[in-house]
C-alpha cells in the first residue's frame, strides 16, 4: 500500500481520481458561481461524482451482471447500483425543489445573481 506512487494512482485508480475531480469541481461551482441555476448544476455535478464513486466500488475484474442463474460468478456487487438508483431519484427531487425556489426568487426579485439577491434582501 505504502509504495503507491502518484503515477500509479493516475493509471490504476483513475476512476477514484475522476470522482474526486468531478465532486470538487461541482462543489466549487456551487460555492463560487454567482448564478443560482449554475449553483444547482454544480450541486448536481457534486452528487454525480459521488454516484460514480459508488459504481466504481461495485466493480470486480471479470465480474458479470449479478443475475444469479446457476453458479457462475464472480459478479459485480449489485448493492451500490441499487444505492445509486435511489440516490439519483433523491437528487432529481432536490434539483426540482431547487429550481422551483430559484424560479420563485426570480419572479420576486427579478435576478438570478446571488450577490444581487443578498443586497436586495439586506435592504428589505
Amino acid at each position: 500500500m505504502t509504495d503507491v506512487t502518484f503515477i500509479d494512482v493516475l493509471t490504476t485508480r483513475h476512476a477514484y481520481v475522476l470522482f474526486v475531480l468531478l465532486s470538487a469541481i461541482g462543489l466549487y461551482m456551487m460555492i463560487a458561481n454567482e448564478n443560482l441555476v449554475k449553483k444547482v448544476i454544480g450541486l448536481n455535478m457534486f452528487q454525480t461524482g459521488i454516484f460514480l464513486f459508488f459504481i466504481t466500488s461495485a466493480y470486480r475484474v471479470g465480474g458479470s451482471t449479478p443475475i444469479v442463474k446457476s453458479g457462475g460468478g464472480p459478479y459485480v456487487s449489485p448493492l451500490p447500483h441499487v444505492i445509486v438508483l435511489t440516490a439519483i431519484v433523491v437528487g432529481i427531487s432536490l434539483t426540482a425543489v431547487g429550481l422551483a425556489l430559484t424560479l420563485r426568487l426570480y419572479a420576486e426579485y427579478g435576478t438570478l445573481r446571488a450577490s444581487a439577491l443578498r443586497e436586495v434582501i439586506a435592504d428589505e
Binding site: L27, L43, L101, R104, L105, E124
Partner: peptide, 16 residues
C-alpha cells in the same frame, strides 16, 4: 420572498 432565499440556501448546504 426572503423565505425562499433562506430555503434555497438551506437546500444548497443541507444537500451538501
Amino acid at each position: 420572498g426572503r423565505a425562499a432565499y433562506g430555503a434555497l440556501k438551506y437546500l444548497f448546504l443541507g444537500t451538501t
